[in-house]
Design a protein around this nucleic acid. Sequence first.
DNA 1: TAATATTACCTTTTT
DNA 2: GGTAATATTA
Length: 752
Amino acid sequence: MTTEASYGAALTPGADAIERLLADLNPPQRKAVEHGGGPLLVIAGAGSGKTRVLTRRVAYLVATGLAKPSEILAITFTNKAADEMRSRVEELVGGVSRLMWVMTFHSACARILRANAERLGYKRSFTIYDESDSLRMIKRCMADADVDPKRFTPRSVRAQISAAKNQLIDATDFRERQGSFYEEKVADVYELYERRMVAASAMDFDDLLVRTVNLMELFEDVRERYRRQFRWILVDEYQDTNHAQYRLLQLLAGEERNITVVGDDAQSIYSFRSADVRNILEFERDFAGAEVIKLEQNYRSTGTILDAANALIAHNPEQKPKRLWTDAGRGEPLTIAELDDEHAEARYVAGEIERLISDEGYAREEVAVFYRMNAQSRVLEDTLVRYEVPYQVIGGTKFYDRAEIKDAIAYLSLLVNPADAMSFARVVNSPRRGIGQQTQARILSHANTTGEDVWDVMSRPEQVPGLGTAAVKAVSRFAETMAGLRERAEDGSVARILEAVLHETGYIEALEAERTLEAEGRIENLQELVGVAEEFDANRAVEGDQDQTPLEEFLARISLYTDQDTLREDESLITLMTLHNAKGLEFEVVFMIGCEEGLFPHSRSVEEGNLDEERRLCYVGITRARKRLYMTCARRRMIHGAGGWSVPSRFLGEIPSELVDHHDATTRTGWRSARDEVLGGMRSGGGIQPPPRKQPRAPEVAFQVGDDVVHATFGEGVVTGVEPDNVIVVRFRGGQGERKLMADYAPLKKVS
DNA sequence: TAATATTACCTTTTT
DNA sequence: GGTAATATTA
């Protein structure tokens, strides 16, 4: 712990510098930055300058001497957010930012575990399995535990295990809690999976968190060491933390509890990954004496866009009350466009983008298109190519997900971690070496029964029961090749090792022999990977880690890297991404496509009762837009082959009609009745009366002028007008003026 | 064992 | 529309 002296000495230097850090902040932002020690919760609405507050606060802590740079742990959820925070902090405090830990939960955990893995029975050079690796491992475990993959899909089993881990329920606890036959079986797989993962010295993404918690709980010395190191903790997007992450923060916060968390419950969109909004809602209880600061002034969007967002989110019953406001002016109305099908939708979007760029002077990099599912990008991409609109897609099929890249990385993993059974299985017969499933299964089960590393087993194949002479010979050859490569893997250039692997294992040769366009593409991808390795080598020459070999460091880095991080801002491209990926970003112009029931909100979310979360996702999308927002829906859409009729998303109807320009480009009638029903008061007259249908929320009571009402978000008010289509006008207390609400949908109650 | 053909099943969102 | 597991055959 630091002495009193360093606190005192701190306040003298650079009073100017400190004032400059605070100068352009609004009062609540300033208050958050200047908060001293102890827990702090910042409820930061969309676009309210939360990153600015976080980075300034880090700089402030350093500038005032309250914190040494090395005592700061700043946590984000994505690498991209971490990179941005790091560079913004660096601008403020300079090179000392190097000493801080500014990274994702997962990278921080991986780094802690690298230094301590042996205490938990893992090798220091443990391998990190991504989702597909872990799914393969699950499948293998299911086969070995005699669990029928037809009755229990591997994905659902993994999902259950993952959910359990994120709640820190280990295999033993899991078994104790479960009753049904199904859950018993999952418990069998869970136990086996945990054993196999340790045997392979491998961790999945959940393990990174769970094992770090285990480490801190089991070893007081480790816990104390990191508590002393991270005296100041800051967490971004706190609403997305799960229980394991919450526990980790609790363990790290220590007695001083210098923990700052920033988040927005209205932007919690990761409950499917076990994120628990309660973490943010109950922060004040968990960290008693916490100061709470709300940031409600929005610096990003027009008043119209904010009104739309506020009106939409008001349909969610439970949230921390907050009202986003701006003094930026009204701006232009939103556009809701209805098209015939996804092709017409794509043409509309492409045409509008062209128009916005050529007539209204927007730059391509200021435009983004968001969708619910990655699969939706395809049609749009085809159209953009035809319209010659340059674009980039964030997420989706990833470079590191390609088979050849995974193969190459699996080879390297096996060199570094000789216990890595999944990498072995991936690589041993690729390219074909005459080592088929039978042989592989025998080697793996021999490794499992003897407890040896796969590497050692394959090095002495004659000891494996049941192997024929041909198999023994093939395996020996492979083992020799690998042994030769391993000697050289100890040090030196990663790029060189990778090239040696690709050539000496015959991998490239096999691709060349294919003489297909596809194989050529694969070779190009591998060359790109070599390029990545070269870049890594060059950077490492400047700042290397002594504890790890270059190859180990490379693999550790790459396993937590996704191409999320490849978002480019400087090039003139429009950006395509899922709504989930859009969180934390902002664009002048935003298109949200596929706003149809079943797609958005997704039918599965509706079935599982996660409608509120879908609505928050919509809220996130809307609040990304600075100036212009388009929402589109198609009346017909192909979903995996078969086409179907669609109904506009209920979210469109939740946006007050006076904020919207409605653009109808559909060509036939018949569908309109369904649409009019959802869009409600948006247009009047005409059309056939829609068949009666269940309302999302039953109409409560008829409201009359003069009724006192209370609204989930806006608070108390009085009804000042009643309009057709169940629209009522309410004047809320607290100088917010009047709002039009749809009585059937708004979370509004009469008070007597 | 490997290569090909056929079928089933899919799809939410991601560190 | 696409992948991945399975059946079939050389």
